[in-house]
Amino acid sequence: MQQLVEKDPDAAILWFWKAINGRDRVDSALKDMAVVMKQQDRAEEAVEAIRSFRHLCSKQAQESLDNLLIDLYKKCGMVEQQIELLKQKLRMIYMGEAFNGKATKTARSHGKKFQISIKQETARILGNLGWAYMQQNNYAAAEVVYRKAQMIEPDANKACNLGLCLVKQGRLDEARRALEDVTHGRFSGAGDGKSTKNKAEELLREIEVRPATSTSEVGLGVEDEIMERIELVLNDWVPLRSKRLPIFEEISAFRDRIAC
């Protein structure tokens, strides 16, 4: 099948359609078809295919389909849909329903397996949510989300985006501190690359020639029902009978603090 995808992706898509219609390994057929469609710049078709046929897939496949949909929404510029799905995934984490109730899950990348924790998944989703708010120019909302993500699992890329949010709001001293953390190499990991540092340096140069302004707007566009439940994962995750995570810290005090 991999050879068919590489040589004739259109034929591969027809084969995937046939498998789906014949109820033959629908989980893999739908996901693989959507990936090929995305590669062929047919992301909107892939979105409709997932929406139309995901009910035929197993419960275990739904989470990976959601992740694929988020990527497709991003490619299509469907920001509102992306935000809503990201919030839905955060609700699942809050209710203890993510990872099928387990503390970690096994993921694959480039043929290798690795473990992802609830903590890492929460930070990843918040990072994506912050990016989506930035696409709407809602930098105050993005700031709140990025700060929360950094409290959970800090990295250079999110710090750089946080700095940009602060620049856009005219809070240049705060932005400078966030960006200098990036340029001084205070983070490690995948987001600590040369391109991230270059972006931070560019923003710092912009700050030097930009007049300072200020705004007290914090978290605009972020519904209280969601943001009050995006709590900080601090300890090992242990599901309770209620399924709610016992280790979340309320965000309200944090929001009051940064609003001052």
Results as ranks from 00 to 15, higher is better:
residue 46 A to I: 01
residue 63 E to P: 04
residue 107 A to R: 15
residue 37 M to G: 01
residue 40 Q to A: 13
residue 110 H to E: 13
residue 4 L to T: 04
residue 59 K to C: 10
residue 86 L to W: 01
residue 107 A to L: 15
residue 35 V to L: 11
residue 11 A to L: 07
residue 60 Q to P: 09
residue 21 N to F: 01
residue 56 L to V: 09
residue 92 M to V: 04
residue 38 K to F: 06
residue 65 L to M: 09
residue 112 K to G: 09
residue 87 K to Y: 04
residue 76 C to G: 02
residue 77 G to M: 11
residue 40 Q to R: 13
residue 61 A to Y: 01
residue 61 A to G: 07
residue 111 G to L: 13
residue 15 W to F: 07
residue 60 Q to A: 15
residue 119 K to D: 07
residue 86 L to A: 01
residue 84 E to K: 11
residue 100 N to E: 15
residue 33 M to D: 00
residue 106 T to Y: 13
residue 119 K to C: 09
residue 115 Q to Y: 11
residue 107 A to F: 13
residue 111 G to F: 12
residue 55 H to N: 10
residue 78 M to Q: 11
residue 110 H to W: 13
residue 40 Q to C: 11
residue 62 Q to K: 14
residue 24 D to F: 13
residue 90 L to H: 06
residue 6 E to T: 05
residue 7 K to M: 05
residue 18 K to P: 02
residue 22 G to E: 14
residue 51 R to E: 10
residue 62 Q to G: 12
residue 108 R to E: 15
residue 9 P to D: 08
residue 52 S to I: 02
residue 70 I to S: 04
residue 13 I to P: 00
residue 92 M to Y: 06
residue 52 S to M: 08
residue 29 A to P: 01
residue 63 E to C: 05
residue 37 M to R: 04
residue 39 Q to D: 12
residue 85 L to Q: 09
residue 101 G to F: 10
residue 117 S to C: 11
residue 65 L to D: 07
residue 22 G to Y: 03
residue 85 L to G: 03
residue 89 K to S: 11
residue 71 D to C: 09
residue 71 D to G: 13
residue 99 F to N: 15
residue 43 A to C: 09
residue 55 H to A: 12
residue 75 K to P: 03
residue 96 G to N: 08
residue 120 Q to Y: 12
residue 6 E to P: 01
residue 50 I to F: 04
residue 34 A to D: 02
residue 54 R to P: 07
residue 7 K to N: 10
residue 61 A to P: 05
residue 22 G to C: 04
residue 90 L to C: 07
residue 4 L to M: 06
residue 20 I to R: 00
residue 75 K to V: 09
residue 36 V to K: 00
residue 33 M to A: 07
residue 44 E to A: 06
residue 22 G to R: 08
residue 103 A to H: 04
residue 77 G to S: 10
residue 89 K to W: 03
residue 52 S to G: 12
residue 12 A to F: 01
residue 76 C to Y: 03
residue 92 M to H: 12
residue 63 E to I: 09
residue 5 V to R: 09
residue 66 D to L: 03
residue 115 Q to S: 15
residue 39 Q to V: 06
residue 90 L to R: 05
residue 38 K to T: 06
residue 75 K to H: 11
residue 89 K to I: 05
residue 74 K to T: 11
residue 50 I to K: 03
residue 108 R to W: 15
residue 100 N to P: 10
residue 19 A to H: 00
residue 78 M to R: 12
residue 11 A to C: 02
residue 100 N to A: 15
residue 38 K to A: 12
residue 49 A to Y: 02
residue 26 V to R: 00
residue 70 I to R: 06
residue 89 K to N: 14
residue 40 Q to D: 09
residue 95 M to A: 08
residue 41 D to I: 06
residue 15 W to N: 05
residue 6 E to L: 08
residue 13 I to D: 00
residue 9 P to G: 04
residue 15 W to D: 02
residue 89 K to P: 05
residue 97 E to A: 10
residue 26 V to L: 02
